[in-house]
Design a binder for these strands. Structure first.
Lengths: 239, 239
DNA sequence: TCAAAAGTGTTGTTTGTACACCCATGC
DNA sequence: GCATGGGTGTACAAACAACACTTTTGA
């Protein structure tokens, strides 16, 4: 950061965009809002909005999410920067630099439209297409990032409620990666990763209505996963 | 991105900051410039500057780097977004949102001061402290990110010239991680990763003036590393 | 008694690690 | 020759994948 002598800087609008992801009925869903105004009126878009003068992008992201959809931190929201999109022309009317975030949520509460959004909806990731602005790309980037981070971080627990079963945790991996995993091996790997999950003593829960009740776990204190939980190599991946 | 009806947005200045890293004489160096003006006059800082109205942050990053230090893309520059720093108050005078980049460079050409920089210098990573603004933190984040990405991407080749030996590649890992690696095993892992490096047929080069000439390799086409090249776990890491 | 889901055991293969050892070059 | 750095081989151990098997629940 330099060149303060040249105060001939151009003012930019700074916004945040949020790719809010959750799992529901075995599919990855993204929170979308329908735009009420031009440009892209009537099109679906990622929630977001302007950063206010007194707040950071992170603060703005949480505020916008609450305003537009009613989701708050209390809902167990995991928020993390994705990247910043700054191409000139990404907004047809003005120069907008947008800091994009990925947000992960355990349960998908019903959402309502808010201030600027006509309506808000959980859309299956696959059917979220032709979004406003460059949101298709942001969403694709978010999904890629999340898929990759499942391998070498404890991120998967962010998709789970405070107490969860190993089966639920496995479903996170399977849904995001679109693969199936061997249950015994998955369980062993997770339990062998110190700090990934910790057992809730004595607790158990029935999952599918049938079957043996599953032991409950909480997210551990670790954030990184060593060794990583690699996804099965789909034949022909450049590796 | 929503809420265009409320045109009461606040103008922000948008800048780029660059953590330009290279290896020289077995140590990790970062490119710093000495600030000519207040605030932080006389302090070292990461190179960077304002994003112009007609350019993206990526374009601005390349331009600033060329202006302040004379480095160009032709020098084999690898540029990639780190994250965006947007806390209010990170610049004492005005609201500045900064998109930070990590840049990796093979050789460290001599650098000259430029437009706004009194002088530019390659500083050993360890002795770069008390930088202007929040640049200490940006630099630390950059180093962490690079260290992590060495494990599961082909990023290490970005520190190497177009043709390099496996010994040089290994030194990249050892220097950034601050560890030593077993040479035979390192070689095997690298060669077993399809697309990481490709042999330059028949080529060889003497490295230390002594010893057997080493075969030369080029960066391959892959960007991800499957399986990853994990750094040896320093005893007591949370795993 | 059956199906479903959790959890344990076992086995063969792969991978990783820690070495010892040979090769080519400059001094 | 010898020091230096490149390159190969090997043997033991750890990790992984696949799959059989037991346990506990609801219907």
């Amino acid at each position: 950061m330099d060149g303060y002598d040249t105060y001939a800087y151009e003012p930019f609008a700074v916004t945040v965009d949020l790719a809010v992801l959750t799992l529901r009925e075995g599919s990855l869903r993204v929170l979308l809002v329908e735009r009420g105004e031009e440009p892209y009126a009537g099109r679906w878009a990622l929630p977001g909005g302007f950063v206010q003068p007194d707040e950071s992008a992170e603060t703005a992201a949480r505020r916008e999410l609450a305003e537009e959809t009613g989701l708050t931190d209390a809902s167990g929201l995991h928020l993390e920067q994705l990247r910043t999109y700054s191409e000139p022309g990404r907004d047809p009317r003005m120069r907008v630099v947008s800091v994009a975030f990925t947000a992960l949520l355990a349960d998908a509460p019903e959402v309502r439209g808010g201030s600027d959004a006509a309506q808000a909806r959980w859309m299956p990731h696959g059917s979220a297409r032709a979004l406003a602005f460059d949101h298709d790309r942001i969403l694709a980037d978010a999904r890629d990032r999340v898929g990759a981070k499942l391998e070498y971080t404890c991120l998967a627990t962010a998709f789970c409620p405070p107490e969860f079963t190993l089966g639920e945790l496995q479903q996170v991996y399977e849904t995001v990666w679109g693969t199936t995993l061997d249950r015994p091996n998955f369980r062993r790997k997770v339990l062998a990763s110190p700090g990934f999950v910790e057992a809730v003593p004595g607790a158990a829960r029935l999952t599918g209505g049938r079957g043996k009740p599953a032991a409950l776990y909480r997210a551990g204190t670790a954030t990184a996963l060593h060794p990583p939980l690699l996804r099965p190599t789909p034949e022909g991946r450049p590796a």
